[in-house]
Amino acid sequence: MMCQAAFVYSTKFLDYHFHSDHPFNQKRILLTKDLLEKAHLLSENNIIEPRRATQEELELVHDKAYINAVSKAGDTGLSEDESMEYGIGTEDTPAFPNMHEASSYLVGGTLAAVDAVLQGKSDHALNLGGGLHHGCKRKASGFCIYNDGAVAIKYIREKYDLRVLYVDTDAHHGDGVQWAFYDDPNVCTLSIHETGRYLFPGTGQVNERGIKEGHGYSFNLPIDAFTEDESFIDVYEAAFRQIVDYFRPDVILTQNGADSHMYDPLTHLCTTMATFDHIPMLAHDLAHQYCNGRWIALGGGGYDMWRTVPRAWAQIWSVMKTGGIQQGMLPPEWQSRWQAESPLTLPGSWHDDQRMVPTIPRKADITEKNKKILESTLKYAINKQIHP
């Protein structure tokens, strides 16, 4: 199936840069864009420019005082008390010059993607600069300054009056987006993530189900460390299908962190590219089945910048553009361009994942354990909630 799709990109995305040793590096987007171009999947007529989100748009989610603090942090700097209050200047989220402007372009990129889809210019749109799901109303968190996904959902609700299903497959819980809509029955959030027993931010338990009118529209599926493809795909497929049929959204917004891959240095999950093939394929199919194709996808986490993220994110665009995933060898021109910079040997193909098997615990035992855990989690978090 050939689909009209928009790819949001600007070199301004690279200005969101904490420091050279920080794990969050937006060069991932450039690597992905170049891979798509070398694979002849992306051309200039697919690319749309982001705009800078306005103060009014940022205030859909964030307090004015916090926005002013972000501006000040990137200009003259914050006092120690202000840094503590607003979460800026920490090891995770250090201040950098012009951070307000750089962060506003990431949000504006997601809003450009929303408008492209909801104004009928594209069926789908991808903003790999977005997906900063930890940003809170008045505090930066987990590498995220402004929460572009939450701002975009508020924007959709106010400008287009549509019901939104937000699906987050980052290894870290999508806490900032969940809390922004925890009492809203017109926004349904689903987060599949590594359990908070081991990983930041420590939230995302199955009993976080929403409050007031929003009760029953928040879904969390925490999975255990060492989860592999079979378990991840099973829970993703079952949950997504049941929830989309239950909620009947007008538009689907997905956050596509690539940090559940076994190569990722910050998490403990053990998926391969098989999972990252399945994630966009199902989103694409369900968007066409329930939402007339309206699907907006964002980036997110992913800290194995050279080997994993470009391949995982490129498959999202391939599905949007062609309806299918890429197979076979990676473009040699892409490999030759980036191998000199990469500290690691780049993969030779789209699915070149050599399993790194830990000695303890044995992965077969963990996989069997996870099957049982996920079965009970699904029964509680999905079936009981949708079919009381």
Score class of each variant (00 low, 15 high):
Val235Thr: 05
His19Val: 00
Gln354Trp: 10
Glu101Trp: 05
Arg307Asp: 03
Gly176Ile: 12
Gly214Ala: 05
Thr195Pro: 01
Ala297Ile: 06
Tyr380Ile: 13
Asp245Ile: 04
Ile192Asn: 01
Cys3Gly: 12
Asn45Trp: 03
Ala225Met: 07
His100Lys: 14
Cys3Ala: 15
Phe240Gly: 01
Phe226Leu: 11
His22Phe: 02
Leu60Gly: 08
Glu82Cys: 13
Asp365Pro: 00
Gly120Glu: 09
Ala150Asn: 10
Leu221Cys: 01
Leu58Asn: 12
Ser318Glu: 12
Asp353Asn: 15
Gly142Tyr: 05
Asp34Ile: 00
Asp229Thr: 01
Asp352Ile: 09
Gly216Ile: 01
Gly131Asn: 08
Pro343Asp: 13
Ser79Met: 11
Thr90Val: 11
Gly108Lys: 12
Arg362Pro: 04
Val206Cys: 06
Asn45Gly: 02
Phe200Ser: 09
Thr267Asn: 02
His261Gln: 09
Tyr182Lys: 08
Gly77Val: 15
Asn147Pro: 11
Ala150Phe: 08
Arg294Ile: 10
Tyr182His: 10
Thr271Val: 12
Arg241Gln: 10
Phe143Cys: 00
Glu91Arg: 11
Asn98Ser: 07
Met320Ser: 15
Val117Trp: 09
Arg209Val: 13
Phe13Gln: 08
Asp285Asn: 13
Asn45His: 13
Val151Ala: 09
Tyr160Asp: 10
His215Asp: 04
Asn207Met: 04
Thr169His: 01
Phe143Ser: 00
Lys64Met: 04
Asn256Ala: 12
Lys363Met: 15
Arg197Val: 05
Leu126Glu: 06
His19Asp: 07
Gln178Phe: 05
Glu228Pro: 00
Phe13Asn: 06
Gly204Asp: 09
Leu126Asp: 07
Glu49Tyr: 07
Met2His: 13
Lys159Gln: 14
Ser79His: 10
Ser122Lys: 11
His278Ala: 07
Val319Leu: 13
Leu346Cys: 10
Arg163Met: 14
Ser231Ala: 13
Gln326Thr: 08
Ser141Gln: 11
Asp183Tyr: 03
Glu368Asp: 14
Arg163Gln: 15
Ser83Tyr: 09
Arg28Tyr: 00
Ala180Lys: 05
Glu341Gly: 07
Gly328Gln: 06
Thr90Met: 14
Gln289Cys: 10
Ala65Lys: 14
Gln326Pro: 03
Glu208Val: 07
Pro310Tyr: 01
Met320Val: 09
Gly149Tyr: 03
Asp175His: 14
Asp148Met: 03
Leu106Tyr: 04
Glu44Thr: 14
Gly300Pro: 04
Ala364Asp: 13
Glu368Val: 08
Phe240Asp: 02
Thr275Ile: 00
Lys72Pro: 02
Pro222Val: 00
Gln255Gly: 08
Thr367Gly: 03
Gln327Phe: 03
Ser141Asp: 08
Leu78Glu: 11
Asp115Gln: 04
Ala102Gln: 11
Asp229Ser: 01
His215Trp: 02
Tyr236His: 06
Leu190Lys: 05
Tyr166Ala: 08
Thr377Cys: 02
Pro347Asp: 13
Ser318Arg: 15
Ala314Lys: 03
Ser10Gln: 13
Gln289Pro: 02
Cys136Tyr: 05
Ile382Phe: 05
